[in-house]
Design a binder for these strands. Sequence first.
DNA 1: AACGTTATGTAATAATATAACATTTATAAG
DNA 2: CTTATAAATGTTATATTATTACATAACGTT
Lengths: 132, 132
Amino acid sequence: MQKEYNLSKNQKIIFDLIDKSGGPMKAYSILFNVQKKGIKAPLQVYRALDKLVEIGKIHKIESRNAFIACQNSSCQISKATAFSICENCENVSEISNSKLSKYLSNFSDNSGMKYSKYNLEFFGLCKKCKSK
Amino acid sequence: MQKEYNLSKNQKIIFDLIDKSGGPMKAYSILFNVQKKGIKAPLQVYRALDKLVEIGKIHKIESRNAFIACQNSSCQISKATAFSICENCENVSEISNSKLSKYLSNFSDNSGMKYSKYNLEFFGLCKKCKSK
DNA sequence: AACGTTATGTAATAATATAACATTTATAAG
DNA sequence: CTTATAAATGTTATATTATTACATAACGTT
């Protein structure tokens, strides 16, 4: 289980918002939504986001500049992330596939580089959008 | 083989710059470098970049907001990209590994989604940076 | 040459993210 | 419990990345 209780005030406000939204959220949309809670400046949002990413509570969807709550209850894989992204409705979900993560975590090529982290983003049309 | 001859003027200027640089370049750094060639505005750069990405001559490194020339001579894989990124020196290289690309191109999970595209970014320390 | 498509030029502005500095709160060590 | 240190906050300004809107020009086809 994750420890949520040691998030700071701003971190908790922002995590809860993202988590409840159920999807990816952008920084300035987050800012707008937490202004009533006293978080007024972009930097306050970005600092919380940085920390939440660092501890694996959320992930950044790089191709969308958006942040999504980690959907793996055990959340040990913040350094090994994979997402599926619908190019039509922009729905995003985290892929949790042990074969895939094992394959990628063990991947090495002839560059002499040892990879400590990866991020994979798949694109396509989700079920709903495909059937339209 | 790629057809280079049908790039437009701006596209060619910008592709040549990125290609010769040998690494990833950021949009405004590109802009600065092509101002002497008459490209004055961000939009001119972004339009050329968009087109070059679309036709697979360059790829965007999403985690870095940077663009790199495609390093696969046959360049049929602009919809299936993988990069290795050194977190210390920011060196980026395109991974061209047929097993990996086959594995990912054929990947499917139980979401009912058919993936038409992916982007994978590996992070770590390159040989040089590791030995410091 | 007329048409549609692609590319260009230009100005303004939107969206995303960080720097710099002052202060406060939490955590841990003595 | 108090001092030291690290982590978090608050605030202003600014840097960086990217797009909208509109006008014009060049290219490719028939």
